[in-house]
Design a protein around this nucleic acid. Structure first.
Lengths: 226, 226
DNA sequence: AAGATATTTCATCAATTATTCATAAAAGGT
DNA sequence: ACCTTTTATGAATAATTGATGAAATATCTT
C-alpha cells in the first residue's frame, strides 16, 4: 500500500498543517495550490486519498471533483470554510466521501482520513478474489474454495486466511495479526491466533500444495508460497 | 550506523553535560545554541537523533520540530524545564518521540536516547533485505537463503547474522552483540554469543565465499567482506 | 429465550531454542 | 617450546514457545 495523499488547497498554511499531521501518520503527501495543479498532480501520482478545498480561485473544488470522478473512484474529502454552506446534495451527487469544516481539530481530521481510507480499502478488499493454485478466497461472498470444493468456515477464519494470503511470505507476529484481522484495538490473548491457525490448517490440510501456513518459531506466522 | 546526535539548547551548561554523557556512550555530538542554528545544523548533518529544548529565544523547540518534520522522520527527544508544562498533545501531534524533564538523571537520559534510537533502527531493519553474493537475509520473512537454498535457522541466529551482516567489517564485542541482538539488558554468559556464532558458521560453512564471520582475537566478532 | 454457531481463553503437553558448562583447541606472548 | 589467555565445541540443562483439546463466553438465529 502506498499511503499517498494529495492535498489541494490554495491556503498554503492550511496545506502545511495538514501535511504535517498526515506525515506523522506515515502518509506521503503531495500539495497542490490550485485546482488545475491538483488535477495535474492527480493524474501524475495516483493517490490513495484526496483532500480537496472547495473555495479556490479559477477552478474550484467542485470542478476538480467532477473532473476526477470522470476517471476515478479515489476517495475524496472536501474542505469547507466555516460560514460557507456546504451543499451536501451536490457533494453527494458528485461523489465526495466526506467533508470537514475549517478550522478543524487535527485529531478529528486524521480520524476522518483514516475512516475514509479504511472504508475504501475495505471495499477493495471486499471485491478481491485471492487465488493460489487450488485455493480461491472470495471476500465478496465470504467463501473459500479448495480443490474446487467449498470449504465452510466462520468469518474470522476467512478473514485471517485472506489477510495472510494477501501478504504472501511476510511474517506477522500474533500481535500484528490481532491488530490487522481482529478489531482495531483488540487486547485479547495472542493464543487466539494459534487456535484460528490450527483450524485453518485442519480444514485446508493437504500434501503437495504450493503454499502453506508456516510457523516462524519465536516470531509468528506466514503464508508461504513456493 | 553513524551514531551522530544533534543537541539544540540555549543553555550551554546543559549542552556540555549532555554532550559529555553522549560522548561517553560513543556518540558524536553536535551542539546548536538556538533554534535556527539547530535547523541549519540539521540540514547539514543528518543526525540519527535530535535532542531539542522547548524554551529557546527566537525560534522555540516547537518551531524547530515543525520545521524538521516537514522533511524528516528523524527521532526527536524534547527537553522541558521542571515547572514548565509539557504539552503532550502538541508534542504527540507534531511528532516528538519522547520528552525529558530537566533536571534529569543522566542514566535515565541515556536510557531514553537508546530506547528511541533502538525503536527507530528496528523499524528500519525490519523491512530490510541484506544481500551478499550468495547470501540473502530477509528480515520480513525471517528467511536466509544461501546458494539459493533456504537455510532453516532459529530466530536468534537470524537476528545475529542480520545484525552482523548489516554492519560489515565492523568488530563487535560479545557484550555489544548481547546488547544489540539480545534483549536490552541481558546479563548472561558472553559465551552464549560464541555458541550462536558456531552454529551460524556450521550452517553457512563453505569455501570461497566473499564474506566470513571472523573472530577478532581478544575483541569479538565481525562479518568480514572482502 | 433457547439453541446453534463462533470466538476466546485456558491448561497441558510436546517441540524447539537458548544457555550454561566442561573440555579441547588455538592464538599470543616470552 | 612453554605458559597463559582466549575461543571453539559437544553435550546437558533450562527456558521458551507452539499445538491442541476442551471449556467458557459471546454472538447470531429462529
Amino acid at each position: 500500500m502506498d499511503k499517498h495523499i494529495l492535498v489541494i488547497d490554495d491556503d498554503k498554511n492550511i496545506c502545511e498543517v495538514i501535511k504535517l499531521y498526515l506525515q506523522k501518520e506515515g502518509y506521503t503527501v503531495t500539495l497542490a495550490y490550485d485546482g488545475q495543479a491538483g488535477i495535474d498532480a492527480f493524474e501524475r501520482e495516483v493517490p490513495e486519498l484526496i483532500v480537496l478545498d472547495i473555495m479556490m480561485p479559477r477552478k474550484d473544488g467542485w470542478d476538480v471533483l467532477k473532473h476526477i470522478r470522470k476517471t476515478s473512484a479515489v476517495p475524496v474529502i472536501m474542505l469547507t470554510a466555516k460560514g460557507e454552506t456546504f451543499d451536501k446534495v451536490l457533494g453527494l451527487e458528485l461523489g465526495a466521501d466526506d467533508y470537514i469544516v475549517k478550522p478543524f481539530d487535527p485529531k478529528e481530521f486524521i480520524a476522518r482520513v483514516k475512516a475514509v481510507t479504511r472504508r475504501a480499502n475495505k471495499q477493495e478488499e471486499e471485491n478481491t478474489e485471492i487465488v493460489y493454485d487450488e485455493l480461491i478466497i472470495n471476500m465478496s461472498n465470504y467463501t473459500v474454495l479448495y480443490k474446487n470444493e467449498i470449504v465452510e468456515m466462520p468469518p474470522k477464519e476467512i478473514e485471517l486466511l485472506s489477510f495472510l494470503a494477501s501478504h504472501p511470505n511476510k511474517v506477522f507476529t500474533r500481535e500484528q495479526l490481532l491488530q490487522q484481522v481482529w478489531d482495531f484495538e483488540f487486547f485479547g490473548d495472542s493464543r487466539t491466533v494459534d487456535v484460528h491457525i490450527k483450524r485453518l490448517r485442519k480444514k485446508l490440510f493437504d500434501q503437495g500444495k504450493n503454499w502453506e501456513i508456516k510457523t516462524v518459531w519465536g516470531v509468528g506466522y506466514k503464508f508461504e508460497v513456493r
